[in-house]
């Protein structure tokens, strides 16, 4: 086992997931449409007053991103668990923590990054100005990887468990709260002229904490699941 073979293994695990995701493009599209749909429901629910929408916009887009990325989580391990790929990964001589990190990275590229890219379109619906749009983009770029990392723990824990989907949301959504607060807060702060720097650095700090703990917890959970 040398470094070269570890790099190759991580690259392969990531690209295998991306390849599989690309051959299931319809699934990715569903997540994006869900994201747009949830955000579009809010104006219908609370009325179309521009001032109100501008105020609500960042929060709504963030909540929608939260729900969409949670919805995508079930795809992270479920098929690997079903077809036996996951137990083969658990038997690889490479550290499982890094292998799941590669999977989480691929998952974010396939389902988190597209959310970030179309978020400005939803921002337009809520009449966010250019500055707010930019901060929204930055906050999602820093925040959605954290969502994928935290969510991976829940996704691995609920593998093969009764009522997986609903249980997953119960486990994961409370843990998403800080990301939501700082993410939506960043946009609101910049709109209020306070500057989003503090919020964005806190989002970055959350990402670092999640990068340290989440892959480890996910690897432990995967081992529990394939027992």
């Amino acid at each position: 086992m040398n470094d070269l073979s570890l790099t190759a293994a991580l690259w392969t695990v990531g690209s295998r997931d991306l390849l599989a995701a690309m051959r299931h493009r319809a699934d990715l599209l569903t997540t994006l449409i869900f994201f747009a749909l949830v955000a579009s429901l809010f104006p219908l629910g609370v009325g179309s007053e521009t001032a109100l929408l501008r105020l609500m916009g960042p929060g709504v887009v963030w909540v929608a991103a939260l729900l969409a990325s949670m919805l995508a989580l079930t795809r992270l391990f479920a098929s690997d668990y079903g077809d036996g790929t996951l137990e083969q990964l658990a038997l690889s001589p490479h550290p499982l923590t890094l292998l799941v990190l590669a999977k989480i990275g691929a998952h974010w590229l396939a389902s988190g990054l597209p959310l970030v890219i179309i978020a400005p379109l939803l921002g337009l619906q809520f009449d966010l100005n250019a500055d707010a749009q930019l901060v929204l983009l930055a906050s999602l770029l820093l925040g959605t990887p954290t969502l994928s990392l935290i969510g991976a723990v829940g996704a691995a824990l609920t593998l093969g468990v009764r009522g997986g989907g609903a249980l997953l949301s119960l486990l994961v959504l409370p843990l998403y709260v800080p990301v939501l607060i700082f993410g939506a807060g960043a946009v609101e702060a910049s709109a209020a002229g306070l500057g989003a720097g503090a919020h964005l650095s806190l989002l970055g700090a959350l990402l670092l904490v999640a990068l340290v703990f989440a892959p480890w917890a996910t690897a432990v959970s995967v081992r529990i699941a394939v027992e």
Partner: peptide, 27 residues
């Protein structure tokens, strides 16, 4: 090397992709 009931073969990938990728992931 372990081969269980579940074969670890992914539907979306071709036969050669399956073999190559599972082998490299296994080191």
């Amino acid at each position: 090397a372990y081969l269980g009931h579940l074969s670890g073969v992914k539907d979306e990938l071709t036969a050669s992709e399956n073999i190559r990728m599972s082998a490299v992931a296994a080191g």
